[in-house]
């Protein structure tokens, strides 16, 4: 069954027809040709497909496109829409926080989401105090970024990159 939906992707409005089984990830990649989000597992197990969905990080392989009619999607590419890298992207470059780059768009979107969640005071499993303002400690960042697998294992560079982008020198 097909359905027609609207999506705003990286600032651009789209009207598109999707199979009701189409994930948001496949809608982006295979219908709209935006291949910035990657498919590493299609099962919500790796994080490669992470985008900012209505402002929060989300796994697009676990979202059915038909359920997101009218949504606003920002991919890693869209974070640098005006050609200028987002501070998170710059920090990933500075810290060599990747090798093959396949997990990277997802890591970058996830990190942008993490910084926002921390700014809003959301605690994590690693927070020493559930009511205080979380800090961008190693453990906080590593915990919050653990939904994004990096098989090249750039983790020890990703954590300082996220801290750098969050204005916390490591």
């Amino acid at each position: 069954m097909d359905a027609e939906i609207s999506l705003r992707v990286d600032g651009e409005a789209h009207r598109l027809t999707v199979d009701t089984r189409t994930t948001l990830l496949d809608a982006l990649r295979e219908r709209l040709g935006n291949t910035s989000p990657k498919k590493g597992c299609d099962h919500g197990q790796c994080g490669a497909c992470t985008v900012l969905l209505d402002g929060e990080r989300a796994l697009t392989c676990l979202a059915l496109a038909v359920a997101y009619d009218g949504a606003e999607v920002v991919t890693a590419d869209g974070l640098a829409a005006d050609g200028e890298l987002h501070p998170v992207q710059q920090a990933f470059l500075d810290r060599d926080a990747f090798q093959c780059g396949y997990c990277t768009p997802g890591q970058v979107c996830s990190a942008v989401g993490v910084l926002d969640e921390v700014r809003r005071g959301w605690p994590s499993h690693a927070s020493p105090d559930l009511t205080g303002d979380p800090e961008l400690s190693h453990d906080e960042v590593a915990e919050r970024m653990s939904g994004n697998i990096c098989r090249c294992a750039a983790y020890v560079n990703i954590v300082p990159a996220v801290q750098q982008a969050g204005g916390q020198a490591s």
Binding site: E30, T35, S36, A76, Q89, F98, G101
Partner: peptide
């Protein structure tokens, strides 16, 4: 030196095998 392909990778515009734009692909 910083990776020459770094900007494409942090933006997600590096084209991996099934990212390659082609006309009307079949699956």
């Amino acid at each position: 030196l910083v990776r020459r392909d770094g900007v494409q990778k942090v933006r997600g515009t590096a084209t991996y095998a099934v990212d390659t734009p082609v006309d009307l692909p079949a699956y």
